[in-house]
Nucleic acid binder design. Structure first.
Length: 453
RNA sequence: GAUCCCAUCGUCUAGUCAGGCCUAGGACACAGGGUUUUCAUCCCUGCAACCGGGGUUCGAAUCCCCGUGGGAUCGCCA
């Protein structure tokens, strides 16, 4: 009863659409809806159409149109037809409204709020069944709802009316949209019937919720696709993650590229319960995709984040490629490159208080570091290998473990307890900076007084 | 309030439509262990769920009903 019913109209080739209103950015929920439509079109060899619902002439802006298109392109969701603008199709809607008026199925409003009198559609008082691919049959009683304004006093059609006219005229076979449109659907079906249009198949996908389980909104922080792009999320990771919100391939696959998603996607595997947007998992997935990026591509995507840092340098002797290389597998979000490599570009970094306590204020830490810097200073060739050999050579000398040297040395060089390999760090910094930073740390330790045990 | 939707680990989910293969599988997160100079990666282990109550049935996470909980929508916004 529930699924299955959508197969019958597969003789028609699939036509679906994404129809955002340009009153803001493309948000995560919209992106997921667009993705499902796109995936379904690609999986079935159908067409994906883009329509801009700009009938709110006050809130719609050209900038938002541009931003939305940019986000869709960034995600790789290319469209086959459009974008069509509803604001350019007023004549069409008016024509159909007139038909309803002529047929006595609609009437003019008594009151006049603007330039024109609103046109109102008489909702037939009867029960309507919405056949939905993800929810099954849903029954509504249209005698419980008020008549529907289809043309506003400003001369623009309302959402439900323009939507139905366009969906019908554009020959859409499946309407895949958010759950929040369920209450609109019985009204729209009444319109389809009044206008003699065939009713398309519906697939209402569950909503994406925030941590507090309410509908995802600005309250939950950054929710625009653009902001994720700016933070250094990869489009493939984003798409992959979004595809798994409300849908799954049925086996245990998680990491799936576009082609694999297209091959696996089907509407009847969309589940009917809402899902919470989990940034942690997105970060994990993004890190996964970053790691798989070839170095050149990774570099090209990461450099913009480093640009500012680099332009502030008075010397250009920092091996940026090497820094990128040693950070490659540690990043989950490209933006993280900035805070995590600050010490490479900045000599006056602060010591993390916890690192100081744990690694610097230990008995003999100053002596160990002094011995180390003396040793390093004598090196003629200063690279990853030579610094490691030199460092290890003093282990026996001092009778300490490798950790006893390496840990405080890392804090001395970076101020942090975690990061790339110590000798990689030394190699990037070079002899002069390495030695002077160790001296700085020794001085710091002495100024603090050595902690007891 | 009215209408509708939904209900499996903290989160995303598999299993639900065609009831037994489920002592409920995977992933993120978390905890522990191994590898590593640290962190991360990688590997291993662990923790952790069928909202409650009634039915139907030889048998229910799966079907039905009632509760409860959550969500969405009730605009001349889309």
């Amino acid at each position: 009863m529930k699924r299955v019913l959508h197969m019958q109209e597969n003789q028609k080739s699939v036509r679906v659409r994404f129809a955002p209103s340009p009153t803001g950015y493309l948000h995560i929920g919209g992106a997921r809806t667009a993705l499902f439509n796109w995936l379904f079109a690609r999986a079935s060899g159908g067409k994906f159409i883009l329509r801009i619902e700009d009938t709110d002439k006050i809130r719609s802006t050209q900038e938002d149109v541009t931003r939305i298109l940019e986000s869709l392109k960034w995600l790789g969701l290319n469209w086959d037809e459009g974008p069509f603008f509803q604001s350019e199709r007023k004549g069409i809607y008016r024509e159909y409204a007139q038909k309803l008026l002529d047929a006595g199925l609609a009437y003019y409003s008594d009151e006049q709020r603007g330039e024109y009198k609103a046109v109102i559609f008489k909702i037939p008082h009867k029960k309507v069944v919405v056949k939905d691919i993800v929810h099954g049959d849903m029954e509504f009683d249209n005698s419980l709802i008020k008549d529907l304004v289809i043309f506003k006093s400003d001369g623009y059609p309302t959402y439900n009316f323009a939507c139905v006219i366009d969906d019908a005229l554009m020959g859409l076979t499946h309407i895949i949209r958010g759950d929040d449109h369920i209450p609109n659907t019985p009204k729209q079906i009444a319109l389809y019937e009044a206008l003699g249009f065939p009713v398309p198949c519906f697939a209402h996908v569950p909503l994406i919720l925030g941590k507090d389980k309410s509908r995802l909104s600005k309250r939950h922080g950054a929710t625009s696709v653009q902001s994720y792009q700016e933070d250094g999320y990869l489009p493939d990771a984003m798409v992959n993650f979004l595809s798994l919100l409300g849908w799954s391939p049925g086996d245990n696959r998680e990491i799936m590229g576009l082609d694999e998603l297209i091959k696996s996607f089907s509407l009847d595997r969309i589940n009917s319960n809402n899902s919470v947007f989990d940034d942690e998992k997105l970060r994990w997935m993004n890190g996964n995709y970053i790691k798989k990026l070839p170095f050149d591509e990774y570099k090209a995507k990461t450099m913009p984040f480093l640009k500012e840092k680099i332009s502030n340098l008075n010397t250009t002797d920092v091996d940026v490629d090497y820094i990128l290389k040693i950070m490659h597998e540690r990043l989950r979000v490209l933006k993280d490159i900035v805070p995590q490599t600050d010490y490479f570009f900045n000599d006056d970094f602060q010591y993390d208080p916890k690192a100081v306590k744990k690694r610097l204020l230990k008995p003999n830490a100053d002596k160990i570091l002094t011995t180390l810097s003396d040793k390093l200073e004598k090196l003629d060739i200063f690279n990853e290998q030579t610094t490691e050999v030199a460092t290890r050579s003093i282990l026996d000398e001092l009778g300490v473990s490798a950790g006893a040297i390496i840990h405080p040395a890392r804090v001395a060089l970076t101020g942090l307890t975690a990061g790339p390999g110590l000798f990689e760090i030394m190699a990037v910094l070079g002899k002069t900076k390495t030695v002077s930073r160790i001296h700085r740390a020794v001085k710091f330790i002495k100024s603090q007084g050595v902690a007891e045990c």
